[in-house]
C-alpha cells in the first residue's frame, strides 16, 4: 500500500506548496486590510525571474532570492498605487495581473526551451530514516521546508507578537490604529511587500522545482486559487496551509482516480475542488461570529488620514 501511498502524498505536497506560499502571503496582506487580487501576476513574475537567474547563474539560492525579489518589486507597484495614490485595490490588483503576465512573457522570451537542474532534495538527518514517514516528510527541497516554516512564523507573529497585533489593528480599524500613532501606510506596505515575496516564492517553486522550465502563462490560474484559499481559510495562515493541501489533494486524487479507470466525466472531477471549497466555506461561515472575528474589518478600504 505504501508503495502507492507515498508517491501520491509526495505529489500532493508538490502540488500544494506553490499555493501555500501565495495564500499564506496573501493572508498577511489581507490581515493588514489590503486586498491584492494581483497574486497571479506577482507569482508569474517571480517564476520567470527565478528561472532566468537560475539558468544564468546556475545557483539555486540566487534563483530563489531573485524570485522573491521579483514578486516583491511587482507588489511594490501595487503598494505605491493603492497606499500612496489611493487607487482602488480591486481594480489595481486585476491590472497588476494583466501587467505581470505581459511582463513575464517579455522577460521570459529568451528562456523558452532552456532547462534548469531543479532544486536538490535535502534530507533531515536521522528523521529521514523512519520508514514511510521519513521519505514522506523529511526529504524535500528547501522551498517545501520554507513554506512550512513561513506558515509557522506567520501564525506565531499574529498570535504572539506585538507586530502581529499592530498588523491586525491596522486591518481592523485603520483610523484607530492611526490615532495611536502607527503609520498605516508603512505597516501595509510592509505586508504587501511580504505578500509579494511569498507569491514570488510560490512562482519560483513552480519554475524551479515543480516543473523546472519556463513557458508563458505557466502559473495557469494558481494565483486565483490562492486568493480563494485565503477566504476559505478565514484569514488564518495555518488554515490556508491545510486548505492548500486539501485543494492539492483533491486535484491529485482525481487524476489518480482516472488512472484507475473511474468512469466519470473529467469536467465533473475537475469541479470537485471548487465545489468542496464552497461547501466547506458554507460550513465554516455558518458559525458567523467566528468568521466576523477573523475578517479584517477594513479590508479593501483605502486609508487617508483626513478621511
Amino acid at each position: 500500500m505504501s508503495e502507492l501511498f507515498v508517491p501520491v502524498l509526495l505529489t500532493i505536497i508538490t502540488a500544494s506548496t506553490p499555493l501555500v506560499f501565495a495564500a499564506a502571503g496573501e493572508v498577511v496582506v489581507e490581515k493588514s486590510g489590503v486586498l491584492n487580487l494581483g497574486v497571479e501576476g506577482m507569482m508569474i513574475v517571480g517564476a520567470v525571474i527565478a528561472f532566468a537567474v537560475g539558468v544564468k547563474t546556475e545557483s539555486a539560492a540566487l534563483a530563489i532570492i531573485s524570485g522573491a525579489a521579483g514578486g516583491m518589486l511587482t507588489a511594490f507597484i501595487f503598494g505605491f498605487l493603492t497606499l500612496r495614490l489611493l487607487a482602488n485595490q480591486v481594480a489595481t490588483g486585476l491590472a497588476l495581473t494583466i501587467f505581470g503576465l505581459g511582463l513575464s512573457a517579455l522577460i521570459g522570451h529568451g528562456f523558452v526551451g532552456k532547462t534548469f537542474s531543479g532544486l536538490p532534495k535535502i534530507g533531515v538527518p536521522f528523521l529521514e530514516q523512519i520508514p514511510v514517514l521519513g521519505p514522506l516528510l523529511f526529504v524535500h527541497d528547501i522551498l517545501v521546508y520554507l513554506s512550512v516554516i513561513a506558515v509557522f512564523l506567520i501564525t506565531y507573529v499574529f498570535n504572539k507578537t506585538r507586530l502581529g497585533l499592530i498588523i491586525r489593528a491596522v486591518g481592523e480599524n485603520h483610523h484607530a490604529a492611526h490615532s495611536i500613532g502607527y503609520s498605516i501606510v508603512w505597516v501595509r506596505m510592509g505586508c504587501i511587500l511580504f505578500g509579494g515575496s511569498m507569491a514570488g516564492l510560490g512562482g519560483a517553486y513552480l519554475s524551479l522545482a515543480y516543473t523546472p522550465l519556463w513557458v508563458e502563462g505557466m502559473t495557469a490560474g494558481r494565483g486565483w486559487i490562492a486568493l480563494a484559499l485565503v477566504v476559505f481559510a478565514s484569514w488564518r495562515a495555518w488554515r490556508a496551509f491545510f486548505g492548500a493541501y486539501l485543494f492539492g489533494g483533491i486535484t491529485i486524487i482525481q487524476l489518480h482516480a482516472q488512472g484507475f479507470g473511474v468512469d466519470i466525466a473529467s469536467q465533473f472531477l475537475s469541479m470537485l475542488p471548487y465545489l468542496a471549497t464552497i461547501v466547506v466555506l458554507v460550513l465554516i461561515s455558518n458559525n458567523s461570529s467566528r468568521m466576523m472575528l477573523n475578517a479584517p474589518a477594513d479590508l479593501g478600504k483605502s486609508f487617508h488620514a483626513s478621511d
Binding site: L86, A87, N88, T92, A95, F99, G102
Partner: peptide
Amino acid sequence: LPNAVTGVFQGMLLFFLLASDV
C-alpha cells in the same frame, strides 16, 4: 510586437488611470 507588450502596455495604462483618480 509580441502580445506580451500589449499586456505590459495595458497594465501601465490602467495603473496610470487608477493612480490619476487620486
